[in-house]
């Protein structure tokens, strides 16, 4: 008994430094934001504890921010765009990283490292910089993409200004860098596949493709699921590229949920409560999806 409570004490001590910072600088703001979602937006005055209690008690409007958000047509465009983006990006990113990781296998150690590094390095650049770069590349007149197409005699479209292709353009610019992390994780996972299994497959005379399909890919399921979860969470929260490249436009063809939240909070008047509400709707969606995927991951872990 004594040892277990002593152990508990140590447990708390070890998490204390990080947890105390977390509580003050992350948990508390999230809590305040959550409270905001149920209140009429007003200035958060905090010159004393009286202000805080007033904030808690007054201005309460129940679920109205949520119902307002659901009544807003742009919300559904944002939802649609975000889901579309996620449904394309996740398989693309994970699939590409798997393909590249598999293709790297037969190369020697140095080349492997070189390619892995080459794919990973650009994704380490900040999202802002990559978005600025691609916005410049997509320029309809001076951008290198349309200039190259022009040299081939093809009229390049207005990549970011045409509502039909704007979202796809942004997706492509992100998809170029998304596989980077996946390649490294997959490579590492592949390297942990026990020799015996591969030997066995080889003995049976399996061709490369068969080997991949029946042995390697199933063994990578946990990794795959992990990458799917991470990419899903990231895709749901795509913002920076939209902000830099199209500002949600033209119209709302590239408005995603987080951009919608930003718009409500900073561009619209008096709708910060709605922004907080949508944030929590988004949070709930992502949490549910991640939870489902985690459960699947847990059950797949035994092999």
């Amino acid at each position: 008994m004594r040892t277990s409570s002593r152990k508990s004490l140590w447990g708390y001590l070890f998490i204390a430094p990080h947890l105390s910072l977390f509580l003050v600088f992350l948990f508390l703001p999230v809590l305040l934001a959550f409270l905001l979602a149920f209140r009429e937006v007003s200035v958060i005055r905090f010159e004393g504890s009286a202000d805080f209690f007033r904030f808690l008690v007054s201005d309460y409007i129940g679920w109205r921010n949520f119902s307002d958000a659901f009544a807003e047509p742009v919300f559904y465009s944002a939802l649609r765009n975000t889901l579309l983006y996620t449904l394309v990006m996740v398989p693309l990113s994970v699939g590409l990283s798997l393909l590249l990781a598999l293709l790297i296998i037969p190369l020697n150690e140095r080349l492997q490292g070189l390619f892995r590094g080459a794919y990973y390095l650009p994704s380490m650049f900040s999202g802002v910089i990559l978005a600025l770069l691609w916005r410049w590349i997509y320029e309809p007149k001076n951008g290198i993409l349309n200039l190259a197409l022009d040299a081939l005699g093809v009229q390049g479209p207005n990549w970011l200004g045409d509502p039909k292709i704007a979202l796809a353009s942004i997706l492509v610019s992100a998809a170029v860098y998304a596989p980077g992390l996946g390649v490294i994780i997959y490579s590492a996972a592949i390297s942990r596949i026990p020799d015996e299994l591969l030997e066995a497959a080889h003995m049976d005379g399996a061709s490369t493709l068969q080997k991949w399909r029946s042995v390697v890919i199933p063994l990578l399921k946990p990794t795959t699921l992990f990458l799917v979860v991470i990419n899903t969470i990231w895709s749901f929260q795509v913002f920076t590229s939209i902000y830099i490249m199209t500002r949600g436009g033209p119209g709302d063809s590239t408005t995603t949920l987080v951009y919608f939240i930003y718009d409500l909070a900073f561009k619209q008047v008096g709708r910060k409560g709605e922004a907080a509400a949508v944030s929590f709707i988004l949070f709930a969606m992502v949490a549910i999806v991640a939870f489902i995927q985690f459960r699947m991951l847990r059950s797949e872990a035994e092999y």
């Binding site: 934001a33 939240i261 909070a265 910060k272 944030s279 988004l282 949070f283």
Partner: peptide, 10 residues
């Protein structure tokens, strides 16, 4: 999973 836009003001 909470977007930072929601947390900035708090």
């Amino acid at each position: 999973m909470v977007p930072y836009q929601a947390i900035v003001i708090p």
